[in-house]
Amino acid sequence: MGRLKRKRAGGFAPPRMHHDMGGQPAGKVTPKEHAYADWEMRVDALVMLMRRHGLTVDESRKNIEALPPEQYDRMGYYDRWVASLAQTLIQRGIVTTEDIARKMQEVQARGRAKV
């Protein structure tokens, strides 16, 4: 009883989502850049082309924000984009998880992909 009361009364720290990082301590800004690989540019293109079919930027963001923090930090920008696109397509029923699983196996077995 006493414990419950204490929990309700104080020590309430509202959760902060991992992506919502404004003001958090972080290291020095290093002006790093890289030339985008062709596949990264294609991920960008796929997302933009699907926006014409009604996918919204907020769905993409939601699915990026849902990534586990350690993955969010480890993944590259377009890794996050393509992972989020896959989730969105599944959520919208445009493709199924099974479609993606089968196709990934097929492409991997092929080893090389035509562009």
Binding site: W39, R42, V43, L46, L49, M50, M75, G76, Y78, D79, V82, A83, L85, A86, L89, I94, V95, D99, I100, K103, M104, V107, Q108, G111, A113
Partner: peptide, 15 residues
Amino acid sequence: LSYFQLMEVTLRELL
């Protein structure tokens, strides 16, 4: 192919 490259090819071909 990296995992995410694989996913790019996969989604592109599916779509």
